[in-house]
């Protein structure tokens, strides 16, 4: 089993890259989508709605296959597998992230908006100094779950030629036929990566805490 380790760890590195890249894409996409969703302009609201429903309503694997097999036929160029995977998994996560952000932002009480307006805050000050700091503690725990889901979803990238843990495990399985060892090892590596990611998110959560009263 030891001789499998280097190849699996190389795969783990790629899995890490895909996950990290997808998380970045998801963060940008969900921020944009939620800003559009919460804007008062319907012209911005509905494209964001379509994006969210489209990616939440279909399956990540179908999205990935579609981008890998069907999209290049309409695109003038063929993006590399890893870029395709990062963008698709990122957009997929972003659709879920947008709903998390929206729920948290809308749960900031109206009184806080009133107070910010009464103090004559500009729209930006209101968003960044009043609304978001209070939404953060509500955003982080579900975001941590989403990021772990994205780590697990990154395994799908192995099905479209990205040389991640899954891809390398398949190669090892075919060459060694030691099925239990190969996939058992893969499961353990994913598990450890998930624990690390969860621990990191919990650290972040702890740093974002402030004493919240029942009614301020």
């Amino acid at each position: 089993m030891l001789h499998m380790l280097p190849m699996m760890l190389r795969g783990a590195l790629v899995t890490g890259e895909v996950t990290a890249g997808a998380i970045v894409v998801a963060s940008v996409a969900s921020s944009c989508a939620v800003a559009m969703r919460l804007s008062t302009l319907t012209a911005l609201d509905w494209p964001a709605r379509v994006y969210i429903e489209l990616f939440r309503g279909t399956s990540a694997l179908i999205q990935l296959f579609w981008a890998f097999y069907a999209l290049p036929l309409v695109l003038p160029f063929r993006p590399s597998p890893i870029i395709t995977a990062i963008v698709v998994l990122g957009l997929n996560g972003g659709a879920y992230g947008a709903e998390i952000l929206r729920g948290a932002i809308l749960s900031v009480p109206r009184g806080q908006h009133d107070a910010a307006t009464a103090l004559n805050f500009s729209a930006t000050t209101k968003v960044f100094r009043v609304v978001l700091p209070q939404a953060w503690p509500l955003i982080l725990p579900p975001m941590a779950n989403l990021f772990i889901d994205m780590l697990k979803n990154s395994a799908l990238a192995g099905l479209v030629q990205v040389t991640d843990i899954t891809f390398n495990a398949q190669i090892l399985q075919e060459s060694t036929l030691r099925n239990a060892e190969v996939y058992g090892l893969a499961l353990v590596i994913y598990f450890i990566m998930a624990l690390v990611l969860a621990g990191f998110m919990r650290l972040l959560e702890r740093r974002m805490k402030f004493p919240v009263g029942a009614r301020i």
Partner: peptide, 11 residues
């Protein structure tokens, strides 16, 4: 919950 369904399937 912390491991990919895909690998569980393969396993």
């Amino acid at each position: 919950r912390d491991t990919p369904l895909l690998i569980q399937l393969f396993f």
